[in-house]
Design a protein around this nucleic acid. Structure first.
Ligand code: ZN
Ligand code: ZN
Ligand code: ZN
Ligand code: ZN
Lengths: 159, 159
DNA sequence: CCGCGAACGTTATATCATAACACACACGAT
DNA sequence: ATCGTGTGTGTTATGATATAACGTTCGCGG
């Protein structure tokens, strides 16, 4: 998996690929990739940053796709449950998954200065956590690993 | 005996020690360990579980120590800022620190069945995270590591 | 046709958190 | 001694996030 948060990239391409991946995954698993769900994923991909449910809802409203909180929350829950997006606990916000389809323990780097969010593989951290939990007899089902600090650009600006 | 993390322990003793540690740390650092702050820490220690700010506030209200949200939030913020308590993002809740005074990267194991919360050293996971972040030029300042799953007791009950 | 489950639309409400301002008090400087 | 200043507290009001509950629609298999 590639980290996208702090680097330039071909964004049109990355949107198209993610959407197609989601579409195919839904078809393969018999999930309904409905217009609202699709559009919410598009919105997250467009912005390429962490968005609150109400931010997403604002966009849906303007487009006549839904006007009440449950519409946004249901679509977001679907995307999160199926690995197309992640919830960032620290921000009460959502972000499109940078590597949909791959089984992974996401790990987020959140810049406190510019609010950029990068998803990076958290496999090592996740393994360490599972090991520690296992020693206590705790059965880990989901892991949230989130770091707050300064992104490369803001570290420079700070200095 | 109550449950600390997932194990039994001498709870009266653990409350007393934690309170004393906080008291001494405040004195040493010139921080004000005011009645409200002290009482809030006691409340978190008493319950020995994750509590919402409003849960804490309910107790304060009954005791005439404060009746409005800012009172609870201010005290909790103080305790968190100084390492006497932690905030659990996943639960929007607070818990007394299990190792006050020691510099540590806390890591939480949250049981989805019984809501028990254990704090465990997250040093290995935290180190792994910092290493991954460092490769990207990200400067980590704070880390939140939270696992959701089944505690030992609930794993057994489940089987 | 009917029963069912999944998604959606809507209303209302629950839950979590902070802005803003007034007051009290401790403490060091004038 | 008085004044300014910083810090903590009390209070009102509001903002931000999230879900309960119920009715409607629609496709699908019995
Ligand atoms: Zn992109
Ligand atoms: Zn930044
Ligand atoms: Zn205890
Ligand atoms: Zn449990």
């Amino acid at each position: 998996m590639e980290t996208k948060g702090f680097e330039h990239h071909d964004h049109h391409h990355c949107i198209a690929t993610s959407l197609r991946t989601a579409e195919e995954a839904c078809k393969a698993q018999g999930l309904q990739f409905t217009p609202v769900r699709r559009r919410v994923l598009e919105i997250l991909l467009d912005e390429h940053r962490a968005m609150g449910a109400y931010d997403v809802l604002d966009v849906l409203r303007k487009e006549g796709l839904g006007s009440q909180p449950p519409v946004a929350y249901r679509a977001l829950d679907f995307l999160v449950a199926n690995g197309f997006a992640h919830r960032i606990e620290r921000l009460n916000a959502f972000v499109a998954c940078a590597a949909p389809g791959e089984r992974h323990a996401p790990c987020f780097l959140i810049c406190r200065a510019c609010s950029a969010v990068a998803e990076t593989p958290g496999r090592r951290a996740s393994d360490a956590l599972r090991a520690a939990a296992g020693e206590l007899g705790f059965k880990v089902e989901r892991v949230a690993i989130e770091a707050e600090g300064l992104c490369p650009a803001c570290v420079e600006a700070d200095a």
